[in-house]
Simulated assay, not measured.
Amino acid sequence: MDFDELGTTERVLTLLGLLQQRQVWTGPELADRLGVTPRTVRRDIERLRTLGYPVHASHGVGGGYQLGRGQDLPPLLLDDEEAIVTAVSLLLGVNGAVAGTGDAALRALAKLDRVLPTRLRHEVRALSGAVESFDGGRTPVDPDVLMTLARACRDEVEACFDYPSRGEVRGRRVEPYRVVASDRRWYLLAYDLDRDDWRTFRVDRMTEVAARTWRFRPRPAPDAATYVQESVSSRVYQHRARFLIHASADVVRAQIPAGAAVVRARGTERCEILSGADNLDRIIAYVLLLGHDFEVLDPPELGILCRTMAQRLLAAGAATGQGGEDG
């Protein structure tokens, strides 16, 4: 690339920045700001159109050049202040200040991190630390830890960290696959190299997190969100319970928090619930409160408990009916 081409590229980027700053510019205004002729402005406008930017031109009073909305999303040109605000906003989404945005915010933040100049990083960190949300949101995690894990997933490099297990903090060495957000916490799905199996880790419990330089070849992996959800909803409880619910999966998912149970569609009118519990009485009561007909699938003692509870409810109803009669 020669100096003329470099000058053209810089001018076109400056032109793009101007178009993003104001709704409409006339040709003479742009020519004056760029120090070129209106003919050069027209050529640069065509270059932007070739790159995918829909620049519209209108004539007459109030007319000029306007950056429109396209079917595809072309690259954005951000100045330092805009980049800082964007990164801070994404960090708030990552930490749950904006409901339902965690995964998308982390993906976007990982992309922005690839091009964010080093000189801006400390400003992003300082500003994000000065903003809080009154909503409880997710369990707080260090944004730097999230970014380290997201980069390791993106770059396919091993990660290491200390993690508590059975009352002892141990070093773990993993191939990170995905960072997954639940309604309460952040998790890492990774292949544990020392245990030779897939594992789920809570990000807020990790310490001494670091990405290594050793690259790995990605393995065939389970669906990250499903794997983490099933692991979280059942692993910490004494019992695993399965029910067949006579309602659509969409209806039941709207009634149950994602961290409480896994809901799998079984056709269009039924679904299966997989959940964990320390007390089977409570999980039966919870399923009853959903308000749908259901069948017990597992474990067998759950069916016996349902019959026992049904007898209690019938007896309670009969006693209430007798007590309410006039003598």
Results as ranks from 00 to 15, higher is better:
279 N>T: 07
305 L>Y: 01
290 L>E: 07
264 R>T: 14
249 A>D: 11
315 A>S: 14
268 T>R: 12
295 E>M: 07
281 D>E: 14
310 A>L: 13
264 R>L: 10
310 A>C: 06
300 P>Q: 07
308 T>W: 05
290 L>D: 00
247 A>W: 02
278 D>Q: 05
278 D>Y: 03
286 Y>W: 11
251 V>S: 05
249 A>F: 02
280 L>D: 01
275 S>Y: 00
268 T>C: 00
279 N>G: 00
297 L>R: 11
256 I>M: 09
290 L>F: 08
293 D>W: 02
282 R>F: 14
286 Y>N: 12
298 D>K: 11
278 D>I: 03
268 T>M: 08
266 R>G: 03
301 E>T: 03
254 A>F: 05
270 R>H: 12
292 H>E: 10
308 T>I: 09
315 A>D: 14
271 C>Q: 03
263 V>S: 04
297 L>M: 10
308 T>P: 04
284 I>C: 01
296 V>K: 08
315 A>W: 06
313 L>H: 09
303 G>C: 02
307 R>C: 05
276 G>D: 05
292 H>N: 09
261 A>R: 02
264 R>S: 12
315 A>Y: 02
306 C>L: 15
253 R>Y: 01
253 R>H: 02
272 E>A: 10
316 A>Q: 13
303 G>A: 13
269 E>V: 09
291 G>T: 06
297 L>I: 15
314 L>I: 09
311 Q>E: 15
288 L>D: 12
261 A>S: 09
283 I>G: 07
260 A>I: 05
280 L>R: 08
259 G>L: 12
247 A>N: 06
299 P>I: 02
304 I>T: 15
255 Q>P: 03
287 V>H: 09
297 L>S: 00
269 E>R: 14
269 E>C: 07
265 A>G: 07
250 D>V: 11
289 L>D: 14
312 R>W: 10
284 I>N: 01
284 I>G: 05
